[in-house]
Design a protein around this nucleic acid. Structure first.
Lengths: 158, 158
DNA sequence: TGCCATTAGATCGCATGCGATCTAATATCC
DNA sequence: GGATATTAGATCGCATGCGATCTAATGGCA
């Protein structure tokens, strides 16, 4: 005779306890990020930038002449990831990497004229992306806020 | 004398047109995904699985004995990404890769006993992740739905 | 001053992720 | 039946992403 365990374990398990791929927020987040990355790949092709390179340029267009650590902090990435990328951007002539005189440990990253000029080409990008998202600005803002709140929670419990 | 151009270009540009890193949904999505990945990294350490390996196992725990293409479709990834990963899972003894007899082009992926057994260890994971997210199940569900809708839009406009 | 901890980057190894391309097997069309 | 197109995976090259570790420079403290 079956016990009443069924009542405690419904046929459709609650979201948090299921191993079903489609019920997991993690996969929604992961695959949406990949899709967004693909959209950016297409749009960034003209600028000959990868998505991460674009993010680094965004940081530098906002504040030039910062050290590697500050870029790392801003993007929540490790030097391990950024050092090779910065070397590539330097090889392409978009930035310069110079050891700080006041603190020889630091490497100061600054935009070249070409790097600054690239900002003009990049200006059209956000509206193209927004168009591909097919979301109202208000929805985009709300989703962004939710994601940042989630990120904050995750970082606290990492 | 300044023209009235200012009226057409407000000091705080609308979200879709700004190159400010913090105003972009893309960065919120990207960095939140990385944070979530870090949480999973910690939780998956015991299972000796990476995040993507875990996703593949989720697919196989749901439906065993499928070919590589079906896994690719399910996870929206290329064979280029999955073929080496599947070889690693095979080397670890979690899965088997066998050429299909009816269609020699296909490779059928099936779980080994060890691969099936690993599901038991994985069952605790979703609730740990949900706890780290600090979100109510309803919020998680809503966010997931929004992300999937966004992904659908992005894929349509890719 | 001199020893030691800390900090900033760099190097290495490994695991994704994808575009371009290749091979082998199957499907299609005449 | 045979030429051709398509499909399923695999291989290669390159760019992330991070843990572990290294080096050099700075800070702190007896």
């Amino acid at each position: 005779m079956p016990s009443k365990r069924l009542a405690a374990k419904p046929l459709n398990a609650p979201q948090g306890d299921s191993l079903a791929l489609d019920e997991q927020l993690c996969f929604a987040l992961y695959s949406t990020m990949l899709s967004l990355n693909k959209v950016y790949r297409g749009l960034l092709h003209d600028l000959d930038l990868t998505y991460l390179q674009y993010l680094v340029m965004l940081v530098l267009w906002e504040k030039d002449g910062i050290n590697v650590s500050e870029i790392c902090t801003r993007l929540a990435l490790e030097t391990t990831t950024l050092t090779p990328l910065l070397k590539r951007l330097e090889a392409r002539g978009l930035i310069q990497r110079v050891r700080s005189a006041s603190d020889e440990r630091q490497v100061i990253v600054s935009l070249t004229a070409e790097g600054r000029a690239l900002r003009g080409k990049a200006k059209a990008l956000p509206s193209c992306v927004a168009q591909a998202m097919e979301l109202a600005p208000k929805e985009i803002g709300a989703l962004r806020a939710q994601l940042l709140a989630l990120r904050s929670n995750l970082d606290r419990n990492a």
